[in-house]
Write a protein that binds this DNA or RNA. Structure first.
Lengths: 232, 232
DNA sequence: CGATTTTTAGAGTAATTACTCTAGGAGTCA
DNA sequence: TGACTCCTAGAGTAATTACTCTAAAAATCG
């Protein structure tokens, strides 16, 4: 069995994602993994420390994922990396959900987060530039920056957005994956106009791979008109 | 003097935006406009009712702004409308900040919000289609939908994103406007690849109008390299 | 085994906060 | 003026909840 310290984090993460940090008491967490509240406070000085630890964990994951190996990269490869990133963001969705509050409360967290975002955007820029060097993307530096910021905001907000629209099915693993994939699709839409060469050849295939039409888009675009939908 | 009921809403909105709903007690609100807590509860049954009223107000604003007059529309006109929308979203930024929590707590709110988003996206689609009919945009219906969802998520998340990075200057009106304008710029970036004809002619001018380079982008892209920056 | 350190339990506390309740002022209309 | 309704005050309460404290079990080590 893993040590209590990480088990606390795992349980807390689960509960936080499910119900929102605000609605999860330290007693809930303790109860959730069958230990006493006192025990919990032995391992973490307070609730904020738990959040901070989860935050740290999350940042490390993203940092690793944005460290792409040397050498030329296909656009599809890059999208797989992005899938991992969105996956991480999804796993830590409670963080982005209540991010404003955490940042508001803790100046140190704020400082670290700012550095984190800056660092992530820089790493992203490196990746995009390498794609451009390979002729897979055509865009000015300025366009790349705009694109990058939009990608980041979208990726970070997507979990909260979809979960807000569909919070009934909490814990539905299958639906979760669908919404996640639709997030990738939205990012593909962001990049699509800038793709060139081989990347363009694979665009349709990638779109197809990640579009989850019926489930998500119909959730957004009501009954009015679905893409190539049967209409009774 | 306006009536107490709306004064409560105004004060609450201000405090919520400043400190986050979670950190603002009903006593704070009452104190904020110099009335007693009891009085506040005479006008609103509970705190959630205040939030709900603000929510309603916000939705009405957006709905109105997305009701664009008949007849052909220039792209610049449309962007002015978007400016209004982002402005409204900015004014109600606490809502998007804590949206997940509100939706989690209140099933009725959830239902209404879903309808609201769907309705907004449909109205947006109408606008984009009319731009396409005027030859100002070139995109398939599918592309328009992707674009629209991205625009929505970006617009809704932008206030929270920027405020998270820069919460020190709460209430700095000038900075607020700058960040808001940068949000418009990001939306322009989203649409840019699809613009045609006259819209394309005005793209650079519009970009220039809304880009706030030094203030925001440098906040994101650290010192590494700024667009046309002096480098010591 | 004995000693020491790490980990656990769980009852208890202090502080916060959403909300209630009663009583009284202020406007309005006869 | 009197009656009636609308609005306001502000002290008080009940419940929640993050966190503390003491003491004992469990592991570690000589």
């Amino acid at each position: 069995m893993t040590d209590t310290k990480t088990r606390i984090l795992d349980t807390a993460l689960n509960l936080f994602n499910r119900a929102g940090e605000r609605n999860v008491t330290t007693n809930h967490i303790a109860e959730g993994l069958g230990i006493s509240p006192g025990n919990l406070y032995y391992h973490y000085r307070n609730k904020a420390a738990i959040v901070a630890a989860l935050f740290e964990r999350y940042q490390e994951q993203i940092r690793d994922l944005l460290t792409v190996p040397e050498g030329p990269l296909t656009w599809q490869d890059k999208m797989r990396y992005f899938e991992g990133i969105l996956e991480s963001m999804w796993q830590a969705r409670f963080l982005h959900r209540d991010l404003a509050h955490f940042l508001h409360q803790d100046a140190e967290l704020r400082r670290r987060y700012k550095v984190f975002v800056q660092d992530s955007l820089e790493r992203g820029l490196v990746i995009y530039r390498s794609l451009r060097d390979s002729g897979l993307i055509q865009a000015s530096d300025e366009e790349l920056r705009g694109l990058l910021v939009n990608t980041w905001v979208l990726a970070a907000s997507w979990p909260g957005f979809t979960h807000g629209l569909n919070p009934d099915a909490t814990g539905d693993e299958a639906l979760d994956r669908t919404l996640l994939r639709q997030g990738i699709y939205q990012i593909i839409c962001l990049e699509a106009p800038y793709l060139r060469g081989e990347a363009l050849d694979h665009l349709d295939a990638m779109k197809q791979e990640f579009r989850t039409g019926d489930t998500t888009m119909d959730l957004l675009f009501a009954a009015a008109e679905a893409p190539p939908a049967r209409r009774a």
